[in-house]
């Protein structure tokens, strides 16, 4: 069953989410951006990834959490080593899942 009120909330939320997702892609791709803006945009992935990683590792439950409660902060050390060493996305993700499972098994 889908309640009308809930559906309208979802629809409204979806529309206001589509705007920031689509507008820059459609509008900015039609104009030539100044070189400096393009170079700034080239740094957005590094910037976003460092922010997402910091939050995912330090705030796994949505708030700052330290070891031993926060196993992610321990697991990230071998995972970063795997990433630097292999430069492989798949190997790093698989390694991360295994490291986390082992940590839970040993410490949990």
């Amino acid at each position: 069953m889908i309640r009308t009120q809930v559906f309208l909330i979802i629809l409204g939320a979806a529309i206001v989410t589509l705007i920031p997702r689509i507008a820059p892609l459609v509008l900015l791709s039609r104009i030539t951006l100044p070189g400096r803006v393009v170079r700034w945009l080239e740094f957005v992935p590094v910037a976003v990834l460092s922010a997402l990683l910091a939050q995912a590792v330090a705030m796994p439950e949505g708030r700052l959490l330290l070891p031993p409660e926060n196993l992610a902060m321990i697991a990230i050390v071998p995972v970063l080593l795997i990433a630097v060493r292999t430069r492989s996305l798949i190997k790093t993700v698989a390694g991360g899942v295994v490291v986390m499972a082992l940590l839970r098994w040993m410490l949990g």
Binding site: P45, V46, L49, S50, L52, L53, A56, V57, P60, A72, A75, I76, V79, L80, I82, A83, V84, R87, S88, L89, T92, V93, G95, G96, V97, V98, V99, M100, A101, L102, L103, R104
Partner: peptide, 23 residues
């Protein structure tokens, strides 16, 4: 739902992508 360690997959993915980006 946190069994195995799949909940760490995205953090590991961000770590790998960050290293690749820096590289």
């Amino acid at each position: 739902i946190r069994a195995l360690g799949f909940d760490f997959a995205l953090a590991a993915m961000f770590a790998a992508l960050l290293i690749l980006q820096i590289n």
